[in-house]
């Protein structure tokens, strides 16, 4: 889905949502869910929490969409919401981790649960690649995920993240370089 377009069909949907149309909101969620989750995953780097945080984002979006002044700026508005929710969720994980360490004097608790299913997936290539992506610095992970989830161009990613195109390109180059190194001999 292209970020920039002269005529943005989503604006009509936003207007419908603002007037209280729940079905328009459902449709909006379906259409925008991919990149919103991409942003959350890009910032948080924890695949197990993406759905929960996305859920919070959509609930907040529903409650606050009336506050959106400029309808044409809905994407940056939603992006900031997703990003802030992911940052908050990351802080929460860090706090919980510190509490767990201090109370139990245990080694660092890993954020994601390792169920048998997870272990099985981790043996597969997708699992390995996802783990490698999660290990990327958020700085590089975010544009990399947006690029691969939505297929956005550098310009589109830059517009959303409010970064120059060259910066987006540099971060993608470094993300790929790190992934090549991390996955060397694994996939």
């Amino acid at each position: 889905m292209a970020v920039s377009a002269n005529h943005d069909p989503e604006q009509a949907v936003i207007e419908a949502i603002r007037s209280g149309d729940r079905y328009a909101f459902d449709e909006f969620v379906r259409r925008q869910s991919g990149w919103v989750k991409g942003v959350i995953f890009g910032v948080l780097g924890d695949r197990d929490r993406v759905d929960d945080v996305a859920q919070q984002v959509w609930t907040v979006a529903w409650n606050r969409i009336g506050d959106l002044r400029a309808v044409e700026r809905w994407r940056p508005w939603l992006y900031r919401m997703a990003r802030n929710a992911a940052i908050d969720a990351g802080r929460e994980v860090s706090r919980n981790r510190v509490v767990a360490q201090s109370l139990e004097n245990a080694p660092a608790v890993k954020a994601k649960s390792k169920t048998p299913a997870d272990q099985l997936i981790a043996t597969e290539q997708h699992g390995l690649v996802l783990e490698a992506i999660e290990s990327l610095p958020a700085l590089y992970r975010e544009p990399f995920v947006l690029r691969h989830v939505e297929g956005w161009s550098y310009r589109e990613i830059g517009k959303l993240l409010e970064l120059p195109v060259d910066t987006v390109e540099t971060r993608l180059v470094r993300a790929r370089r790190l992934l090549r190194e991390m996955l060397q001999g694994k996939v």
Binding site: S33, G34, G38, R47, V50, V129, L130, H148, L179, L183
Partner: peptide, 14 residues
């Protein structure tokens, strides 16, 4: 890696 990452991410996020 791109192909695998694309598949994995789309699968995860959808």
């Amino acid at each position: 890696i791109d192909a695998l990452a694309g598949e994995a991410l789309r699968s995860l996020l959808s």
